[in-house]
């Protein structure tokens, strides 16, 4: 389907893979226990759910900052620079081209492993959604110190709403994210890349300048 040469590329370092799957595990735990605390169902028992949720949340916050630090110090941040270039093409590809066997408009390269849509979505999740989740979660934990922190104007209902709303967006993201991983050149290609680090992709002749800045 393409005349380009296929090569094996090592995309994800061991740290990145480990961090990814641990995050997945923690976020899954947080969702599962979080909605028990919200009263959607009973599973672990309320008290246990609260304790697991709090422990997992702290572990995940620590992980998130460590990951962020890794991204910033290793140059990985370059993969997350947002761009509007080719976004339209990417959207068109996923909503039409993919069905008729077109090639992806942006190749996955060693130095540019995320396409423009991924960049925007990951950046929004990492800089808006997750911080909202972290800050509302911490506020939830610090409930009795609001007065001392000058946050007496807050209401638990408001915080709870934002936290649940964040969770809904994360679940929605997770559903789409998991599905999108099946859109590689084989359904398991992207998933295996996150397990082994390696993925077979078309060789990138040259990377366009906007992708590496």
């Amino acid at each position: 389907m393409s005349e380009h040469k296929m090569i094996n590329v090592y995309f994800f370092s061991r740290f990145e893979r480990l961090a990814h799957w641990l995050q997945m595990l923690l976020i899954f735990t947080l969702i599962l226990t979080g909605f028990e605390v919200h009263g959607t169902y009973a599973l672990f028992g309320y008290n246990a759910a609260v304790k697991i949720h709090n422990s997992a949340a702290i572990a995940w916050i620590v992980m998130f900052w460590l990951f962020l630090f890794w991204v910033l110090t290793t140059g990985e941040w370059k993969h997350y620079i947002p761009t509007t270039k080719k976004v339209f093409e990417v959207v068109m590809y996923y909503s039409y081209g993919i069905f008729i066997g077109q090639a992806h408009p942006v190749k996955k390269c060693k130095d540019a492993k995320h396409n423009p849509l991924q960049r925007i979505v990951y950046l929004v999740v990492a800089t808006i959604i997750l911080p909202i989740q972290i800050s509302t979660g911490l506020l939830y934990l610090l409930y009795n110190s609001w007065e001392g922190l000058g946050l007496g104007f807050l209401s638990l209902r408001m915080i709870a709403f934002l936290h649940v709303a964040g969770a809904v967006i994360i679940i929605s993201f997770a559903i789409v994210h998991v599905y999108m991983t099946t859109t590689g050149h084989t359904p398991m290609a992207h998933i295996m890349a996150m397990i082994t680090g390696w993925e077979e992709v078309e060789e990138c002749a040259e990377i366009e300048e906007w992708e590496t800045k």
């Binding site: 740290f15 480990l18 422990s55 702290i58 572990a59 992980m63 890794w70 110090t73 290793t74």
Partner: peptide
């Protein structure tokens, strides 16, 4: 070397939390 350190940090932090 950086990569190894990060992984080590990650395990250490998680182990400590749990």
């Amino acid at each position: 070397k950086m990569r190894v350190n990060f992984k080590f940090c990650l395990w250490l932090v998680l182990a400590a939390v749990f």
